[in-house]
């Protein structure tokens, strides 16, 4: 029965591999977080440093479209005060969003920005944004929330219209 023992030995060597790899799947989460932090990619809800060159490119004008969405059937009203505006690259811009809780209880939410085209993200230097932290909003409360940003002068010449979109997600459970 030497052969059986030999097979068992190999089984014992092989079994840890699936267990390790199951853990590896989970280990990818902190690894990617650290990787993104280190390389500075995917930092959508953190303040950016102001661009060094703040000269305004007044010769160029781009159209900025603002968009607002709610997820998970949030009983909120969420909209930008203006849906479209013209800005110069390099210019400091402030836009405001209005948020109102239509329900009878306080709700916490987190806004996640997205950009169209997607590559425009890296040219937006956000100095202030309601998306930098969770918003807890009392029953019936109405709130005006600003976003302050500079569009980098490096914005590619073919990007003439950029959409800045926010989606509010409800934060519940232990995270709320």
């Amino acid at each position: 029965m030497d052969a059986v023992a030999q097979n068992r030995r190999l089984l014992k060597k092989l079994l840890p591999i699936p267990l390790l790899m199951f853990g590896f799947g989970y280990a990818m989460i902190p690894f990617y977080k650290a990787f993104c932090e280190f390389t500075g990619i995917n930092s959508l809800v953190k303040a950016d440093a102001a661009p060094l060159n703040t000269r305004i490119d007044s010769a160029r004008q781009i159209t900025l479209e603002l968009d607002a969405n709610l997820r998970d059937q949030l009983p909120w009203r969420f909209k930008p005060l203006q849906t479209s505006l013209k800005v110069h690259p390099g210019q400091m811009v402030r836009v405001d969003y209005e948020l109102q809780n239509l329900s009878g209880h306080a709700i916490t939410g987190q806004a996640i920005p997205s950009y169209g085209p997607i590559n425009a993200a890296q040219y937006f230097r956000k100095l202030e944004c309601f998306c930098f932290k969770r918003q807890t909003i009392a029953a019936g409360e109405k709130r005006l929330m600003p976003v302050v940003f500079v569009v980098d002068r490096q914005l590619p010449a073919d990007m003439n219209t950029v959409t800045l979109s926010y989606t509010f997600f409800e934060v519940n459970g232990s995270n709320g």
């Binding site: 267990l19 590896f24 799947g25």
Partner: peptide
């Protein structure tokens, strides 16, 4: 042996995101 557990991990994360309040894939 190497990758089937990784898929099992991924769908487990989906499961806990759906029912147990984790936020592996939830932006909020």
């Amino acid at each position: 042996i190497a990758v089937a557990p990784v898929l099992a991990g991924a769908v487990t994360m989906v499961l806990t995101d759906r029912h147990f309040g984790t936020s592996f894939f939830k932006a909020a």
